[in-house]
Design a protein around this nucleic acid. Structure first.
Lengths: 100, 100
DNA sequence: TCAATAATTAGATGATTGTCTAATTGATTA
DNA sequence: TAATCAATTAGACAATCATCTAATTATTGA
């Protein structure tokens, strides 16, 4: 959950996710949508990949990025549990202090 | 959306939200659940308040904190739109570069 | 095989963040 | 009114983060 929230806590990364909804793109195609250096975008893609939000596959000299929304299910569950009270899922790490 | 993701991007703050599901608490009651100084918790509460996730009301010398889940609806909408493709909501700020 | 292209890695830098202690504000009560 | 208690604000500090340029790796095509 930590890596997920971290990845989502940046407008550029969220925009990358939104871009990928329309279909897969390679790193260069993503980078040219932003007024930011390619290494910076590469770093953002790395964080998104660490969170499991995107998957990368090498295709020749290009690296293709695609959306993986299954990770969002965990977040969705956490979020929905706020509407239905008293069904709080566990937010790791280390809530042993909290749960007595 | 920025303040919301920022507020959620910390395990302590998410645990505070989880605590408040059971019912309102004042600042001291919240602080004593954590192995952290009271000013630090106060700061976390401030960020949660800025994001609209909690509301604070002064009651005598105590300050009561309560959960406000309506802000989460925006996030919920954004999240759900990933399941139903091609219904991307707008993620402010400044996506003028992207949407040409 | 070599030059060009795609992308990442390395390293640096300024800004933001989470935490602390000390000081302050405001309310209660002896 | 003075002491105590709840909570925040102020200010400092180390760690993390977003970004940049320069260098590196790997693939392609002439």
């Amino acid at each position: 959950m930590n890596l997920l929230f971290k990845a989502l806590n940046d407008p550029t990364r969220r925009q990358i996710l939104d871009l990928l909804r329309a279909g897969d793109l390679n790193a260069g195609e993503i980078a040219e949508q932003f007024a930011m250096s390619k290494p910076s975008i590469s770093h953002h893609l790395d964080l998104l990949r660490q969170a499991g939000l995107v998957e990368s596959t090498k295709q020749g000299q290009f690296i293709n990025y695609s959306l993986n929304t299954t990770v969002l299910d965990e977040l969705l569950g956490w979020l929905l549990s706020f509407q239905k009270p008293d069904t709080a899922p566990v937010d790791s790490p280390s809530n042993h202090l909290i749960n007595h």
